Simulated assay, not measured.
Amino acid sequence: MRDTYQNGSPAAAGDGAHHLKSLILGHSIRPRRTVLERAKQRALQHDAPSADAQGVRIDLRTPRWQDLSLALPGSKSRSASVLQKSLARADRDPTIRRAFDKLRTRLRQTAQEHNWTSIGVMGPTSGCGSTFVAVNLALSLSRVPGSRTLLMDMNMRSPALADAFDVAVDGPMADFLSGHTPLGAHLVRTTETLALGLNDEVEENPAEILQDGATARTLERMRAAIRPEIVIHDLPGMLTYDDATAFLPQLDAVLLVSDGTQTLGRELKECERLMQGHVPLLGVMLNRARADSITRYT
Protein backbone atom coordinates (compact mmCIF):
# COMPACT_ATOMS: atom_id res chain seq x y z
CA MET A 1 0.00 0.00 0.00
CA ARG A 2 2.87 2.44 0.50
CA ASP A 3 3.08 2.89 -3.28
CA THR A 4 -0.40 4.41 -3.44
CA TYR A 5 0.32 7.50 -1.38
CA GLN A 6 3.20 9.57 -0.10
CA ASN A 7 4.02 10.97 3.33
CA GLY A 8 0.61 10.13 4.73
CA SER A 9 -1.34 12.25 2.28
CA PRO A 10 -2.37 12.10 -1.37
CA ALA A 11 -0.74 14.12 -4.10
CA ALA A 12 -2.09 17.59 -4.61
CA ALA A 13 -5.04 17.93 -6.96
CA GLY A 14 -6.08 20.84 -9.10
CA ASP A 15 -9.62 22.14 -9.38
CA GLY A 16 -11.47 20.69 -12.32
CA ALA A 17 -8.92 17.96 -12.94
CA HIS A 18 -10.30 14.47 -13.27
CA HIS A 19 -7.57 11.91 -13.86
CA LEU A 20 -7.78 8.24 -13.01
CA LYS A 21 -5.06 5.77 -12.19
CA SER A 22 -5.58 2.10 -11.38
CA LEU A 23 -3.21 -0.19 -9.51
CA ILE A 24 -3.64 -3.94 -9.18
CA LEU A 25 -1.73 -4.84 -6.05
CA GLY A 26 -0.31 -8.18 -4.91
CA HIS A 27 -2.14 -9.39 -1.81
CA SER A 28 -2.65 -12.78 -0.22
CA ILE A 29 -5.54 -14.72 -1.68
CA ARG A 30 -8.06 -16.22 0.71
CA PRO A 31 -10.57 -18.96 -0.08
CA ARG A 32 -14.25 -18.12 -0.27
CA ARG A 33 -15.60 -17.10 3.14
CA THR A 34 -17.26 -19.65 5.40
CA VAL A 35 -20.37 -17.50 5.71
CA LEU A 36 -21.16 -18.26 2.06
CA GLU A 37 -20.52 -21.95 2.60
CA ARG A 38 -23.03 -21.87 5.44
CA ALA A 39 -25.45 -19.98 3.21
CA LYS A 40 -25.15 -22.72 0.58
CA GLN A 41 -25.91 -25.39 3.15
CA ARG A 42 -28.95 -23.48 4.37
CA ALA A 43 -30.14 -23.02 0.79
CA LEU A 44 -29.97 -26.78 0.26
CA GLN A 45 -32.53 -27.23 3.01
CA HIS A 46 -35.19 -25.34 1.05
CA ASP A 47 -37.47 -27.35 -1.22
CA ALA A 48 -36.56 -26.68 -4.87
CA PRO A 49 -36.59 -28.89 -7.96
CA SER A 50 -33.07 -28.22 -9.22
CA ALA A 51 -29.54 -27.35 -8.11
CA ASP A 52 -26.67 -25.62 -9.85
CA ALA A 53 -23.14 -27.04 -10.14
CA GLN A 54 -22.17 -25.51 -6.78
CA GLY A 55 -25.03 -27.18 -4.93
CA VAL A 56 -27.33 -24.18 -4.48
CA ARG A 57 -30.90 -25.18 -5.23
CA ILE A 58 -32.72 -23.06 -7.78
CA ASP A 59 -36.43 -23.12 -8.54
CA LEU A 60 -36.90 -23.77 -12.26
CA ARG A 61 -39.34 -20.87 -12.30
CA THR A 62 -36.61 -18.44 -11.21
CA PRO A 63 -35.68 -16.14 -14.11
CA ARG A 64 -32.33 -16.65 -15.76
CA TRP A 65 -30.20 -13.85 -17.22
CA GLN A 66 -32.04 -13.81 -20.54
CA ASP A 67 -35.40 -13.69 -18.74
CA LEU A 68 -34.70 -10.46 -16.85
CA SER A 69 -36.86 -7.54 -17.89
CA LEU A 70 -35.29 -4.95 -20.17
CA ALA A 71 -35.34 -1.43 -18.68
CA LEU A 72 -34.63 1.48 -20.98
CA PRO A 73 -33.12 4.74 -19.67
CA GLY A 74 -35.60 7.58 -19.30
CA SER A 75 -38.19 5.70 -17.26
CA LYS A 76 -37.37 7.44 -13.95
CA SER A 77 -37.03 11.17 -14.51
CA ARG A 78 -36.96 13.80 -17.19
CA SER A 79 -33.94 15.78 -16.01
CA ALA A 80 -30.38 14.47 -15.90
CA SER A 81 -28.79 14.09 -12.47
CA VAL A 82 -25.34 15.40 -11.60
CA LEU A 83 -23.98 11.86 -11.76
CA GLN A 84 -25.60 11.30 -15.17
CA LYS A 85 -23.91 14.41 -16.53
CA SER A 86 -20.57 13.33 -15.05
CA LEU A 87 -20.90 9.89 -16.60
CA ALA A 88 -21.78 11.38 -19.97
CA ARG A 89 -18.64 13.53 -19.88
CA ALA A 90 -16.53 10.53 -18.86
CA ASP A 91 -17.91 8.45 -21.73
CA ARG A 92 -16.80 11.13 -24.19
CA ASP A 93 -13.34 11.45 -22.64
CA PRO A 94 -11.01 8.90 -24.28
CA THR A 95 -8.45 9.18 -21.45
CA ILE A 96 -10.99 8.21 -18.77
CA ARG A 97 -12.48 5.52 -20.96
CA ARG A 98 -9.06 3.96 -21.59
CA ALA A 99 -8.33 3.99 -17.85
CA PHE A 100 -11.49 2.03 -17.11
CA ASP A 101 -10.89 -0.35 -20.01
CA LYS A 102 -7.41 -1.13 -18.67
CA LEU A 103 -8.84 -1.73 -15.20
CA ARG A 104 -11.61 -3.88 -16.69
CA THR A 105 -9.18 -6.17 -18.50
CA ARG A 106 -6.93 -6.63 -15.49
CA LEU A 107 -9.95 -7.20 -13.24
CA ARG A 108 -11.40 -9.85 -15.56
CA GLN A 109 -8.08 -11.66 -15.79
CA THR A 110 -7.58 -11.63 -12.01
CA ALA A 111 -11.18 -12.69 -11.35
CA GLN A 112 -10.96 -15.59 -13.78
CA GLU A 113 -7.62 -16.70 -12.33
CA HIS A 114 -9.01 -16.86 -8.79
CA ASN A 115 -12.62 -17.76 -9.64
CA TRP A 116 -13.89 -14.47 -8.18
CA THR A 117 -17.36 -13.12 -8.88
CA SER A 118 -18.28 -10.53 -6.26
CA ILE A 119 -16.28 -7.29 -6.25
CA GLY A 120 -16.87 -4.42 -3.83
CA VAL A 121 -16.14 -0.82 -4.85
CA MET A 122 -15.81 1.68 -2.00
CA GLY A 123 -13.82 4.66 -0.78
CA PRO A 124 -12.40 5.20 2.70
CA THR A 125 -14.96 7.98 3.20
CA SER A 126 -17.99 9.32 1.35
CA GLY A 127 -17.49 11.53 -1.68
CA CYS A 128 -14.45 9.69 -3.08
CA GLY A 129 -16.26 8.84 -6.32
CA SER A 130 -16.91 5.13 -5.71
CA THR A 131 -20.27 5.25 -7.53
CA PHE A 132 -18.64 7.00 -10.49
CA VAL A 133 -15.98 4.27 -10.58
CA ALA A 134 -18.45 1.41 -10.07
CA VAL A 135 -20.70 2.60 -12.90
CA ASN A 136 -17.89 3.23 -15.38
CA LEU A 137 -16.23 -0.08 -14.51
CA ALA A 138 -19.51 -1.93 -15.01
CA LEU A 139 -20.11 -0.18 -18.33
CA SER A 140 -16.59 -1.08 -19.47
CA LEU A 141 -17.07 -4.71 -18.44
CA SER A 142 -20.37 -4.84 -20.30
CA ARG A 143 -18.69 -3.79 -23.54
CA VAL A 144 -17.05 -7.23 -23.71
CA PRO A 145 -19.20 -9.28 -26.14
CA GLY A 146 -21.00 -12.19 -24.54
CA SER A 147 -20.17 -11.09 -21.00
CA ARG A 148 -22.56 -10.77 -18.06
CA THR A 149 -22.01 -7.93 -15.59
CA LEU A 150 -24.34 -7.18 -12.68
CA LEU A 151 -24.13 -3.82 -10.88
CA MET A 152 -25.73 -3.69 -7.42
CA ASP A 153 -26.56 -0.54 -5.44
CA MET A 154 -25.56 -1.57 -1.91
CA ASN A 155 -25.20 1.99 -0.63
CA MET A 156 -28.52 2.07 1.18
CA ARG A 157 -27.68 5.34 2.91
CA SER A 158 -27.36 7.22 -0.37
CA PRO A 159 -28.61 5.14 -3.34
CA ALA A 160 -27.60 6.67 -6.66
CA LEU A 161 -27.56 4.07 -9.43
CA ALA A 162 -31.22 4.50 -10.38
CA ASP A 163 -30.56 8.19 -11.02
CA ALA A 164 -27.30 7.42 -12.81
CA PHE A 165 -29.05 5.14 -15.31
CA ASP A 166 -32.39 6.99 -15.18
CA VAL A 167 -34.22 3.71 -14.61
CA ALA A 168 -37.32 3.26 -12.45
CA VAL A 169 -36.95 1.05 -9.36
CA ASP A 170 -39.40 -1.66 -8.41
CA GLY A 171 -39.06 -1.70 -4.64
CA PRO A 172 -36.21 -1.16 -2.18
CA MET A 173 -33.02 -3.21 -2.09
CA ALA A 174 -33.76 -4.24 1.50
CA ASP A 175 -36.90 -6.11 0.41
CA PHE A 176 -34.94 -7.97 -2.26
CA LEU A 177 -32.11 -8.95 0.10
CA SER A 178 -34.57 -10.20 2.69
CA GLY A 179 -36.23 -12.42 0.10
CA HIS A 180 -39.53 -10.54 0.06
CA THR A 181 -39.09 -9.31 -3.53
CA PRO A 182 -38.51 -12.02 -6.17
CA LEU A 183 -35.34 -11.88 -8.24
CA GLY A 184 -37.28 -11.38 -11.47
CA ALA A 185 -39.17 -8.43 -10.01
CA HIS A 186 -36.09 -6.59 -8.81
CA LEU A 187 -33.21 -7.11 -11.24
CA VAL A 188 -33.40 -5.54 -14.70
CA ARG A 189 -31.19 -5.56 -17.78
CA THR A 190 -30.23 -2.40 -19.64
CA THR A 191 -28.38 -4.31 -22.39
CA GLU A 192 -27.66 -7.93 -23.26
CA THR A 193 -24.52 -7.78 -21.12
CA LEU A 194 -25.43 -5.48 -18.20
CA ALA A 195 -27.99 -5.96 -15.43
CA LEU A 196 -28.79 -3.75 -12.45
CA GLY A 197 -29.97 -4.22 -8.89
CA LEU A 198 -31.34 -0.80 -7.90
CA ASN A 199 -32.67 0.89 -4.80
CA ASP A 200 -35.09 3.74 -4.20
CA GLU A 201 -35.23 3.91 -0.42
CA VAL A 202 -32.82 5.13 2.26
CA GLU A 203 -32.47 2.67 5.14
CA GLU A 204 -31.83 3.62 8.76
CA ASN A 205 -29.87 0.46 9.65
CA PRO A 206 -28.27 -0.91 6.47
CA ALA A 207 -25.37 -2.61 8.29
CA GLU A 208 -27.83 -4.95 9.99
CA ILE A 209 -29.42 -5.78 6.64
CA LEU A 210 -26.08 -6.39 4.92
CA GLN A 211 -24.90 -8.90 7.54
CA ASP A 212 -28.22 -10.69 7.87
CA GLY A 213 -28.06 -14.36 6.91
CA ALA A 214 -31.01 -13.77 4.55
CA THR A 215 -28.83 -11.42 2.51
CA ALA A 216 -26.13 -14.07 2.05
CA ARG A 217 -28.73 -16.63 0.96
CA THR A 218 -30.40 -14.22 -1.48
CA LEU A 219 -27.14 -13.20 -3.12
CA GLU A 220 -25.98 -16.81 -3.44
CA ARG A 221 -29.25 -17.83 -5.10
CA MET A 222 -29.06 -14.77 -7.35
CA ARG A 223 -25.59 -15.69 -8.61
CA ALA A 224 -26.59 -19.31 -9.11
CA ALA A 225 -29.70 -18.35 -11.09
CA ILE A 226 -28.43 -15.68 -13.49
CA ARG A 227 -24.74 -16.72 -13.50
CA PRO A 228 -23.06 -13.31 -13.92
CA GLU A 229 -19.36 -13.24 -14.68
CA ILE A 230 -18.77 -10.33 -12.31
CA VAL A 231 -21.00 -8.61 -9.77
CA ILE A 232 -19.96 -5.05 -8.88
CA HIS A 233 -21.27 -3.87 -5.50
CA ASP A 234 -21.33 -0.10 -5.01
CA LEU A 235 -20.78 0.43 -1.26
CA PRO A 236 -20.57 3.45 1.10
CA GLY A 237 -17.35 4.75 2.62
CA MET A 238 -15.63 2.08 4.67
CA LEU A 239 -14.57 4.35 7.53
CA THR A 240 -17.73 6.46 7.61
CA TYR A 241 -20.11 3.64 8.57
CA ASP A 242 -19.83 -0.07 9.34
CA ASP A 243 -21.96 -1.04 6.31
CA ALA A 244 -19.04 -1.96 4.04
CA THR A 245 -17.23 -3.84 6.82
CA ALA A 246 -20.41 -5.81 7.54
CA PHE A 247 -20.61 -6.78 3.87
CA LEU A 248 -16.99 -7.99 3.50
CA PRO A 249 -17.87 -11.70 3.99
CA GLN A 250 -20.00 -11.53 0.82
CA LEU A 251 -17.13 -10.24 -1.33
CA ASP A 252 -14.31 -11.97 -3.18
CA ALA A 253 -12.20 -8.80 -3.49
CA VAL A 254 -12.35 -5.05 -2.96
CA LEU A 255 -11.39 -2.12 -5.18
CA LEU A 256 -10.67 1.00 -3.13
CA VAL A 257 -11.28 4.47 -4.58
CA SER A 258 -8.88 7.14 -3.36
CA ASP A 259 -9.81 10.80 -3.90
CA GLY A 260 -6.74 12.86 -4.72
CA THR A 261 -8.36 15.92 -3.13
CA GLN A 262 -9.28 14.44 0.25
CA THR A 263 -8.09 10.87 0.92
CA LEU A 264 -5.24 10.52 3.41
CA GLY A 265 -2.64 7.79 3.52
CA ARG A 266 -3.66 6.76 7.02
CA GLU A 267 -7.22 6.23 5.79
CA LEU A 268 -6.04 3.82 3.10
CA LYS A 269 -3.93 1.99 5.69
CA GLU A 270 -6.91 1.69 8.02
CA CYS A 271 -9.07 0.27 5.22
CA GLU A 272 -6.41 -2.30 4.46
CA ARG A 273 -6.21 -3.22 8.14
CA LEU A 274 -9.98 -3.73 8.33
CA MET A 275 -9.94 -5.95 5.24
CA GLN A 276 -6.99 -8.07 6.37
CA GLY A 277 -8.03 -11.63 7.03
CA HIS A 278 -11.42 -11.09 5.42
CA VAL A 279 -11.03 -10.21 1.75
CA PRO A 280 -8.16 -9.39 -0.66
CA LEU A 281 -7.54 -5.80 -1.72
CA LEU A 282 -7.68 -5.94 -5.49
CA GLY A 283 -6.25 -2.47 -5.97
CA VAL A 284 -6.62 1.27 -5.56
CA MET A 285 -8.24 3.60 -8.09
CA LEU A 286 -6.86 7.11 -7.81
CA ASN A 287 -9.59 9.61 -8.63
CA ARG A 288 -9.35 13.40 -9.16
CA ALA A 289 -5.56 13.49 -9.20
CA ARG A 290 -3.64 16.28 -10.90
CA ALA A 291 -1.96 15.01 -14.07
CA ASP A 292 1.60 15.83 -12.95
CA SER A 293 1.12 13.94 -9.68
CA ILE A 294 0.15 10.59 -11.18
CA THR A 295 3.76 9.44 -11.57
CA ARG A 296 4.08 9.42 -7.77
CA TYR A 297 1.53 6.62 -7.61
CA THR A 298 3.19 4.24 -10.07
Rank of each mutant, 00 (worst) to 15 (best):
Q262T: 15
L264N: 10
R217F: 04
I232K: 08
L103A: 00
V56F: 03
E113A: 14
H19A: 10
K269E: 13
T110Q: 15
S147M: 06
T190I: 13
T261E: 11
F100N: 02
G213H: 11
L68H: 04
R227N: 01
F247H: 05
M156L: 14
G127S: 00
Y241S: 13
E203C: 15
P206W: 00
H114E: 14
I58P: 00
L87F: 06
R227L: 01
M173Q: 09
A246S: 01
G171A: 03
L286H: 11
V82W: 13
G8D: 06
N205D: 11
P236D: 13
G120I: 10
G120P: 02
L248S: 00
R30S: 08
A51Q: 08
V188D: 07
N205G: 05
A17H: 07
V202E: 15
S130H: 02
E37G: 14
E37P: 09
L248Q: 05
L177M: 03
Q262N: 05
H18M: 03
R223T: 11
K21C: 12
K102E: 00
D170A: 10
D200C: 04
M222K: 00
Q45C: 08
S293C: 14
L282W: 02
R89Q: 12
P159R: 05
H46I: 07
A195Y: 07
R57F: 02
V279K: 04
S86R: 14
A111S: 15
V202N: 05
D153S: 13
D200A: 10
N115P: 06
R227W: 01
S178V: 07
L268S: 07
A48Q: 05
D252Q: 14
L281D: 03
D101S: 13
L194D: 01
F132N: 03
T215S: 06
I29Y: 05
L87P: 05
S118G: 13
H186R: 13
R106C: 06
L251D: 01
M275Y: 02
P94H: 06
S28V: 09
L60F: 00
S86I: 15
R189Y: 09
M285V: 02
H46T: 08
D67T: 00
T240M: 06
D170I: 12
P172D: 10
G146A: 11
